[in-house]
Design a protein around this nucleic acid. Structure first.
Lengths: 213, 213
DNA sequence: GTCTATAGAAGGATAGAC
DNA sequence: GTCTATCCTTCTATAGAC
């Protein structure tokens, strides 16, 4: 997934560090934190255990690093659909972007791991929530506020509430099923239907007669 | 929580078995499956480890027993609000029942544990999903179908879709925050607001002019 | 059925050489 | 910075006495 080759060799340790993080991320997202041994990480990264500890000091610190890096990647993927003009089209684009991200193997694995370890690493849940869902909700809230100013969305509603409801409508039981590892994972047509349903309900609840689309 | 005293003493081993299950459930829901040792379970239950293995054979089997018993308890708490006549009042009652259950410490702990271990115990996720969310959705679907027949809910919509949307609207980010152990846990007034918002959106999407309330 | 004691394996972390 | 080899702890599961 992540490129390990660089034009410039840089510090020899930098490449090793990346290999460690990548290997540890794969293992922890696949097996969970507790089930992943530092032995296994060292083996998968092709380094010795002592090197692991030279870089990260402890298993918990390596774990926190991984979550922080994944959070940064997910937070960046939150910006699709905001340029579309018509309200239903924009909702459709944002819904697809959100569900595609949310149902990805990486995102589901992150949710699972963070939920499982949140109370053993208290700052972890907050960091993940602020980096991923909260950022997406905030951007939607700004978008909704602008549409309210145009008269396209009900001005009596709070943008934050509309954001909550839109994304909640997308997290149907398909999200629960995915978190519980129940097959089948939602495919393209099913995601289309989920998005269409959410947009339909949202429009009925919050669109005005002047709404475009 | 669970009564341990019975009028009839029954077999002496039955009481020990209950003590074991109760102790193991508390520990596993508090710390997770991997972090709970059989030593700790034995200590908390006041029995020896050998007794544990005499009853359950292996840690995994004890775990499956606990999940099955919790599922049964949660499935039974799914029937509130169906007797109320007016549609918005019924939705309000069902919403409160659902969120009160969903935000309880036991339910959150169960979601967390099942999600964390679902891919190591494949039948676990299915059992939990069928016993808890699926049963609740099905009952709501029946209720919605009856209201459609009365002309109180849009007959163009599928009852299953309405169930998905109603409960999804209740699982706002408060549910995510709770799963990630982020304080504060939603209190009474906040739950009232969540339910009111969900009912409002649902009514706008699916109510007909003939809807009572 | 229940206990004490222990086997056997695995994991996190470190010492010391290079 | 990196490796090999190892210590110490903790875990699951069992053997054998009562």
């Amino acid at each position: 997934m992540v490129a390990t080759a660089l034009a410039v060799p840089a510090q020899p340790g930098t490449d090793r560090r990346r290999r460690i993080v990548h290997a540890a991320a794969s293992l922890i997202m696949a097996q969970g934190y507790g089930a992943t041994s530092m032995d296994a990480v060292a083996r998968a990264a092709g380094v010795s255990k002592a090197t692991l500890y030279a870089h990260f000091g402890a298993k918990a610190q390596l774990f926190m690093t991984i979550v922080a890096e994944e959070c940064a990647r997910h937070g960046n993927g939150a910006g699709a659909g905001f340029g579309v003009a018509a309200v239903p089209d924009a909702l459709d684009a944002m819904g697809h972007a959100y569900l595609t991200l949310l149902f990805s193997d990486n995102a589901i694995a992150m949710y699972r791991v963070v939920m499982a370890e949140a109370h053993r690493f208290p700052e972890l849940g907050q960091a993940f929530f602020d980096a991923a869902p909260r950022r997406i909700f905030a951007r939607f809230g700004e978008w909704a506020r602008a549409r309210q100013a145009e008269g396209a969305l009900d001005e009596a509603a709070l943008p934050e509430t509309m954001a909550e409801h839109f994304f909640a409508l997308l997290r149907t039981s398909g999200f629960l099923r995915r978190l519980m590892a129940l097959p089948p994972a939602p495919d393209g047509p099913e995601i289309d239907a989920m998005v269409a349903g959410a947009v339909h309900v949202f429009m009925r609840a919050y669109a005005t007669p002047r709404t475009g689309g």
